[in-house]
């Protein structure tokens, strides 16, 4: 658990990119998230850990209002992106999601060509004025997602024809292509083998230079390897939130300690 990189990290205090205060989430009558406060720093990787069903995905989806697409889901509380309340009626969730991108647990490439998958976002948001610019965005995104070498000769082939790991990196490229400010990743490596996982983790570390990244993971090692901040959720509550090194070496709450040492979860 005490990975080398933990100690190497320099903990610059970045400005706060997203701020959640007193967030409650209900599915119908059942409460999935109970008064959660979290700060997501800019250019930082924040990891959400916790046992299955504790509400990590639910909370993650609050950050780009993907919960709006679930009929029974109700979110209350205050979530701000750059000081602006994202649940304000004047905010268009569509524009919000262009700024807060998301990668899902299961790779979900569209049944289109690899090129069209990546170009999807830029086309919708009009990020490129001509074909050359679009080509450039696609290439840059695929490179950033560490899949350019595998994909460059088959850009016109369907994205669904790639392997699971390649598909997931394609989905990351797709999310990166719209130039989001925050990237939400819900267990992005759960379908990947160790090599692809390592690639994605490396990628996350690089992405940190540009955006802030929030990653849900079930792997404590992964959280320790890639994140600077860690939030531990349990039964819908945020139990502990702090520097990753501190959470893993010196947890304040007994529940956190039990979880990271493998006693609950």
């Amino acid at each position: 658990m005490n990975d080398m990189r933990l100690t190497e990290r320099n903990m610059t205090d970045q400005k706060i990119k997203m701020q959640a205060r007193g967030v409650d989430v209900f599915y119908g009558d059942t409460q999935a998230i109970k008064t959660v406060d979290v700060d997501i720093q800019d250019k930082t990787v924040t990891a959400f850990i916790g046992p299955s069903g504790c509400g990590k995905s639910t909370f993650l989806r609050c950050l780009n209002r993907m919960n709006d697409t679930i009929d029974v889901c109700r979110v209350t509380g205050d979530i701000r992106l750059d000081e602006e309340d994202i649940y304000d009626p004047r905010v268009d969730p569509v524009q919000l999601r262009a700024k807060v991108g998301m990668v899902f647990q299961k790779p979900n490439p569209f049944p289109k060509s690899i090129y069209d998958n990546v170009a999807y976002g830029p086309r919708i948001h009009g990020l490129a004025t001509n074909k050359a610019e679009l080509d450039e965005i696609v290439e840059k995104s695929l490179r950033r997602a560490a899949i350019w070498d595998e994909a460059k000769d088959r850009l016109d082939q369907p994205g669904t024809g790639l392997s699971g790991g390649q598909q997931q990196r394609l989905c990351i490229a797709r999310a990166v292509a719209t130039n989001p400010e925050v990237l939400l990743m819900d267990e992005p490596c759960s379908a990947l083998d160790p090599i692809a996982t390592a690639q994605v983790e490396e990628l996350i570390d690089e992405l940190r230079e540009r955006f802030s990244v929030v990653i849900v993971t079930h792997s404590m090692q992964q959280a320790a390897r890639v994140s600077q901040k860690t939030a531990f959720f349990h039964l819908g509550e945020l139990v502990e939130f702090g520097e990753t090194s501190q959470i893993f070496t010196n947890p304040q709450d007994t529940r956190t300690e039990s979880y990271i040492t493998g006693r609950i979860g």
Binding site: M66, T69, V94, R97, K99, F110, Y120, I124, R174, A175
Partner: peptide, 11 residues
């Protein structure tokens, strides 16, 4: 998942 993927990009 496809629908979610597209919505999450801001479509």
């Amino acid at each position: 998942a496809l629908r979610d993927g597209s919505l999450a990009i801001g479509a």
